[in-house]
Design a binder for these strands. Structure first.
Lengths: 356, 356
DNA sequence: CACGGGCCGACAATCGGTTGCCAAAACTAT
DNA sequence: ATAGTTTTGGCAACCGATTGTCGGCCCGTG
């Protein structure tokens, strides 16, 4: 008894301690926890009871050595998460817990190098990695994917699993919405050049405006911040269009304040649509935005990852060749930053060649 | 040669593979990396070169088993991080990397139970834990601290290391600022009841107002969101004071919009001060706020943790008895949400018993 | 030339589980 | 009662590092 007190006092008990206390072999204790049906119910009950009494908790790092499974999932996000990723993380976390995994979040710093460092640090310790808004080139991502199951978010890759919002369809909805409001000339406020999403959105913007026979302009690249959006307003003022679609809500919100500073009113003079629906209740003007199903995005990423982890178990060490991206629907949320085009078409400076 | 190809192909090389390739014992390879001077320079160089060629990377979980050191630090934050924690995390991350550690962030869900679960999952895998804005009762924190070095943020504890902003002094600066502007009646917009910080701030508020002979009111508890802050404006309107200090900037920003909706102008009619300085450029009105040195807070937490980890190494398993909280200075940042008290004192409904 | 001391590398135990294989025990069927 | 099958628990070999201990080698000095 004194002996057991001492043991429990110094370090936490191991399966060997439990085994000795129960008069069974350590392997039996191990199986009691890891292989449910394998041990006689009575024996298992007794072991469980004693283990609980002794305060036994299985040492996850010891377990990870032979099985190379840590029940940890890593999600790497650019620098520190903004509203967008917050929602994604929420969904991912729920899905991870549901699957018996723990999700840890690491921020990637601001450079590709810092991100690579973060990934390298984490990869040996986790069972899978979700790369969200990665700054890494495709080749680096492939390297990571070769070592651990990997899923990329909002970025299409042919040889690494990916989950993304159908922003092309979101863009279609946005452009059609503006068209229905009689806007015939649209400007796209572009995001950072390095952003994969931005390229995607701009491409869709061109496709849709062309399809509907609209005039399309583009301003940018613009950093994804309110300040940069605000600054972009003056560039825009030199040659205005009645409809504007921004790379994301941060830019859109800043842009709207920039316009109001210039005396241009939203939505009276200009209709503005953002992306990602992250600005709800952010500024005074409720912003029309293309909403991505953020938590679903995260959840889906985790589920895709889990499938890969399960598949990697038996023989195949990696790359199942080509994989098709999972595409989740976007939805336009109409608020009060969009309105029918005003009839009068002078008033604003440089309103230029409007088609009457 | 074909043999080595196969080996490197299937799984990543181990020290044994490197040792065989070099014709030395595995222990020598191990020491080459962990105990610099212990191995002959030539031998070490050769081993390092071969290891690099083979792409050897030390398996951190295997290393963690005998040493029980994972070089991982966990920071647990309530639900998903807002602007406040984003800055704290940034500072903590930098400090962790500087010390050769990796910081992982886990969100605690919304309940104490979820937080406990998160902590329990993480504790066996990390070398130390930082609890930020924890919802846990002191007793649970003590339990965690008994298992791993632990530091709590913005919460004073006598037997667990803590790092916190000197919000009492921040409150003093805020109240003195308002006094200097001739405000004689102040309202405190209280945050969530469970919040340790809120209790602290309210207490300081009372102390300071009393010291300066001001009238003090309190409204709340209010959820730390803009929406809740906005809603609080109508309660406030029933009995206004010319000066207001809010639990944090979210509440303050919402409160200001709520006031403007009611036709009360800031800072003309009411001066408002927030806490944490997280609303920079958030709304149209630059908010006067009590700024905490957020990144320093995170960095200091990590450094405190590292000291504990180092101390825990030799003999002492835990609790060094009583520890004094580390207090970091707060600073009032004056912007345009505060102004001298207006002379006229009717106009607003229920402006009540003003003294003069 | 012999002896003491440093330096260096190897052996083997250990961290705490997991799991393939085997044998004893219990049960079923003939 | 015997042979055949299924449970069930134990033995021991891993997983990939770390580290205490020991013996061999080389050097210097008496």
């Amino acid at each position: 008894m004194a002996d057991e007190q001492d043991a429990s006092n110094s370090t936490s008990p191991t399966i060997y301690d439990v085994a000795r206390a129960c008069g069974v072999a350590a392997s039996t204790v191990s199986r009691t926890f890891s292989r449910p049906g394998r041990v006689n119910v009575e024996t298992a009950d007794r072991i469980r009871r004693v283990a609980a009494e002794m305060g036994y908790r299985t040492n996850t790092v010891a377990r990870a050595l032979p099985t190379s499974q840590t029940a940890l999932l890593a999600m790497v996000v650019p620098t520190v998460p903004d509203r967008f990723f917050i929602e994604v993380i929420r969904g991912a976390k729920a899905a991870a817990i549901a699957a018996g995994y723990t999700l840890v979040v690491a921020d990637a710093g601001l450079s590709a190098d810092a991100e690579r460092a973060a990934v390298n640090r984490l990869i040996p310790v986790v069972d899978g990695v979700i790369l969200a808004g990665s700054l890494l080139p495709d080749s680096s991502i492939r390297v990571a994917a070769k070592q651990r199951p990997t899923v990329v978010l909002n970025r299409a890759m042919t040889d690494v699993a990916s989950v993304l919002t159908d922003s092309a369809d979101g863009m279609r909805q946005a452009v059609e919405h503006l068209t229905a409001l009689d806007h015939r000339e649209l400007t796209y406020l572009a995001g950072p050049e390095a952003s994969w999403s931005d390229g995607m959105r701009w491409r869709s913007f061109k496709v849709e405006t062309q399809r509907l026979g609209l005039r399309a302009r583009r301003i940018g690249p613009i950093a994804p911040t309110q300040a940069a959006g605000m600054a972009a307003a003056s560039t825009f003022a030199e040659q205005m269009t009645s409809g504007v679609i921004a790379f994301n809500d941060f830019i859109a919100v800043g842009f709207v304040s920039g316009l109001s500073r210039l005396g241009v009113r939203v939505p009276d003079d200009v209709s503005v649509i953002g992306f990602d629906n992250t600005a709800a209740g952010f500024s005074n003007l409720p912003l029309t935005s293309i909403a991505a199903p953020l938590p679903h995005l995260g959840g889906q990423a985790v589920r895709t990852l889990m499938r890969q982890i399960a598949a990697a178990r038996p023989g195949r060490p990696d790359a199942p060749g080509a994989v098709r991206p999972t595409r989740l629907p976007a939805q336009l949320v109409v608020r009060s930053s969009t309105a029918p085009r005003a009839r009068r078409d002078s008033n604003a400076p440089g309103s230029g060649e409007r088609a009457a």
